[in-house]
Simulated assay, not measured.
Amino acid sequence: MAAAQPDSLAEVIGRWSGGRVIGVEREYEIYTGPPGGDRPVDARTVWRDLPGPGRAIDPGDPQARRCPTGAAITTDGPHAEIATPPVVLEPGCTDTVLAHAAAAERHLAAQLGGHRLVGYSTHISVEVRDHAVVPVARLVARRMAIPLMLVLDRAGSPGVLVRPRPGRLEIGGEFAAGDQLRAAVALTVATVLLAERRIGIRRIAAPGAPRVRPARATERFGWYVDRTAFGPDLYVAGRATRIGRAQAQDVLARHWSRCRPVARTVLSDTEVGLVDHVVAGLRPLPMEAPLDDDGPVAAVPDHRHYGERVRGVVTVRVVAASWWKALLQLDGGHGSQRWVTLPGRTLDPVLDALDAGLLDDELALLCRQSVPVTNRWRTPA
């Protein structure tokens, strides 16, 4: 039986507000000219000339454009960047987040025309409560970094970044795609959830895990774990690297054995099985094989727009939108204006409901009311 259509703004918000969220950012270098004779291009020099990048509605990033897939494209220094919308952490989420990343990359490539994109880095974010995110990041950086380095980085990578951000923990490493990205996201999710459970406990869930004193990250608060932080260069021998009395493969296998029960509570059997194969050596680590391409991915809507909507007597504008929050302005005419604050993850479902005409009467009523209306869902700033 098909799910009943929501008939109120509160129902749309409630349906899409449950569970924590994850997301992926991927950075790219831009080149122009034929392969072999191409030249690097600073993304900032071409950004104003993009023909249809999307709406500028992120108050924290004037370069960001919300594109028709729901993701954002922006610049980070000389690099171009895509950022997926928040994806609910549930079985199949690694497929969903990869599909959004691939769709955003296609949109970015189309905007750049004859320029060529070359993957530069990947950042995986997992929602963590504000009061816990710094100790979780510290624990991951000091005791759980080796498995993440093995499943994300390559032989030429420098190391990984572990950055606490408002409401989320961000792990930054080498550019990843396809099953390599799926596996990295799955292990990162499981690692963060395990660390969240273990903060404050002196003997964490992985007795004997190698300790390291990570360096302070530059540019933004967090930690950097270098490829040589544990003594030998982890990226030369990979799984066979000697770390104390064990090999890096032993560290990876022990870590996954403790993460796996946590992973099974939020991921599908297929997603857990993918990491099983990577850990067991049945699938290669990124440093053991060429870069995957994204391959077949799930379809995501690629026709969204974030411009003005006229629904009956009400004009709706998306005033601002970030990962965590969105702000709608309702104009009912004759000076009647209202503002509605939404959790960021619910913006697209609310716009879909608006476009389907499911909220017309409620919006008109809101504009006739004398008190501005905001929702009561709490989200990080």
Rank of each mutant, 00 (worst) to 15 (best):
G119F: 05
D348H: 09
R44T: 15
A299I: 00
D38N: 14
P78T: 09
E170W: 10
V46F: 06
L187I: 10
D76W: 10
P296M: 02
A177D: 05
V133C: 01
L285P: 04
A64N: 09
R55F: 12
S121N: 07
Y224S: 09
V266S: 05
I73A: 00
V192I: 06
Y28A: 03
P349T: 03
F175W: 13
G307S: 11
L282M: 03
T218S: 15
H277T: 08
Y31G: 07
T69H: 09
T265Y: 01
G36Y: 07
G208P: 07
L152F: 01
V185F: 05
P343R: 00
R254T: 11
A102H: 14
V279M: 02
A137C: 03
E174C: 09
A102Y: 12
R258E: 05
I204F: 14
A364C: 10
Y28D: 06
G18R: 15
D153G: 06
D292V: 04
S370D: 13
S157E: 06
L327G: 06
R55S: 15
T75P: 08
L148N: 05
G54P: 02
G273C: 03
R198V: 05
R203P: 00
P349S: 02
A248K: 09
R309S: 03
A263N: 02
H100M: 05
G312N: 13
S121C: 07
E308C: 01
G200S: 10
G37H: 15
H255W: 14
L351Y: 03
A326H: 08
V272K: 09
I124D: 00
